[in-house]
Amino acid sequence: MQTDIDPRSLIGRKAFDRNGTKIGTIDEVYLDDATGVPEWAAVRTGLFSRDAFVPLEPSELVGDALRVPFERSLIRDAPDFGVGRHLSPEQELQLYHHYGLDVTLPSEFHHPPADPDEPRDFGRLAGD
Rank of each mutant, 00 (worst) to 15 (best):
F109Q: 14
L66P: 00
E108R: 15
V62I: 13
V29Q: 04
F81M: 06
H110K: 11
G36Y: 06
T25A: 09
L10P: 01
G63F: 03
D102Q: 10
V54H: 01
D4C: 10
R50P: 00
A15E: 01
Q2S: 15
R44G: 09
R67G: 04
W40K: 00
V43W: 01
T21M: 11
L101W: 02
T21Y: 09
L87C: 05
D33G: 03
L101D: 03
E60K: 13
T35I: 08
T45M: 07
L74F: 02
F70G: 00
V43Y: 01
Q91W: 02
G127Q: 11
T35S: 15
A65Y: 03
R67T: 09
W40E: 01
T35F: 05
R8W: 01
A15H: 02
T45C: 13
K22G: 10
Q94A: 15
H97W: 10
R13G: 02
R18W: 01
M1E: 07
F16V: 06
L61T: 04
K22W: 05
M1F: 05
P69S: 06
A34E: 13
L47V: 11
E57H: 14
A52I: 03
K14Q: 14
E28H: 11
D6N: 15
F81C: 05
I75Y: 02
V103T: 07
V37N: 12
L93Y: 14
E28D: 13
V103H: 12
L31E: 06
A126Q: 11
E57T: 11
L47Y: 10
D77Y: 03
F70W: 00
R8C: 08
I75F: 04
P7E: 04
S107W: 05
D32K: 01
L105Q: 14
H86N: 08
R76V: 04
P7R: 07
L87V: 03
G100C: 09
M1D: 08
P112L: 13
N19I: 06
L56M: 03
K22N: 10
F122S: 06
G36T: 08
G100W: 12
R50S: 10
I26F: 05
D115L: 09
E57I: 02
A41C: 06
H97L: 15
R67S: 14
I11T: 12
H97V: 14
L87N: 02
D128G: 09
R50L: 10
E57R: 07
P89Q: 08
I75T: 05
L87E: 01
A42W: 02
L61A: 08
V62M: 09
S59V: 00
F122A: 09
P38N: 08
P58N: 10
L10T: 02
S9L: 13
G82L: 09
Q91E: 15
R85M: 11
H98K: 08
A78Y: 00
